[in-house]
Structure formats: C-alpha cells, structure tokens
Simulated scan of single mutants.
Amino acid sequence: MAKKSKFEMVKNFYDNGLWKEKRVRDAVVKGWISPENFKEITGEDYDEQED
C-alpha cells in the first residue's frame, strides 16, 4: 500500500470533517501543503494575514 502524500492526508481529514479550515491553514504554515493546495482543499483563497 502506497504512503499518502501530505496533501492527500490533509484533504482527506478536511473532507471527512476531522479538520476545520484553521487546521488546513496550519498545514500551509508548516509547509505540508501550498497555498494553492489550500484553495483546492477548502475552496477559499489562502490569506497569510489570517495566520
């Protein structure tokens, strides 16, 4: 079984209601996903000032 990427893991957690938008935002800060990934996962633009 292939290991999931950080993107897949974060998206799965968000899609299944385990993570809120704030947690996905934290994943961008940690460098796990990009701001573009944030938008793909949440549908919202990533705004650095909200960190």
Rank of each mutant, 00 (worst) to 15 (best):
E50T: 12
K3T: 11
V10D: 03
Q49G: 12
K39F: 06
G43V: 08
G43I: 09
S5K: 08
E36T: 12
D15E: 15
N37S: 15
E36N: 13
F38G: 05
V10W: 05
I33C: 05
E8L: 03
D45Y: 09
D45F: 07
E21L: 06
W19T: 00
V24Q: 00
V28A: 03
N12W: 12
D47L: 13
D15P: 05
A2E: 12
V10Y: 07
V10E: 04
Q49S: 15
I41Y: 08
K6Y: 13
N37C: 10
D15A: 12
F13D: 02
Y46G: 03
K11A: 14
V29Q: 10
R25S: 09
D51L: 13
N37A: 14
K22E: 15
K22H: 10
R23H: 10
A27S: 15
N12D: 15
E8V: 00
N37Y: 10
I41S: 06
V29Y: 09
G17R: 05
T42D: 06
L18K: 13
M9A: 08
K3N: 08
E44K: 15
A27L: 02
E36F: 10
Y46A: 04
M9R: 08
K4L: 15
E36Y: 09
G31Q: 03
W32H: 14
D47E: 14
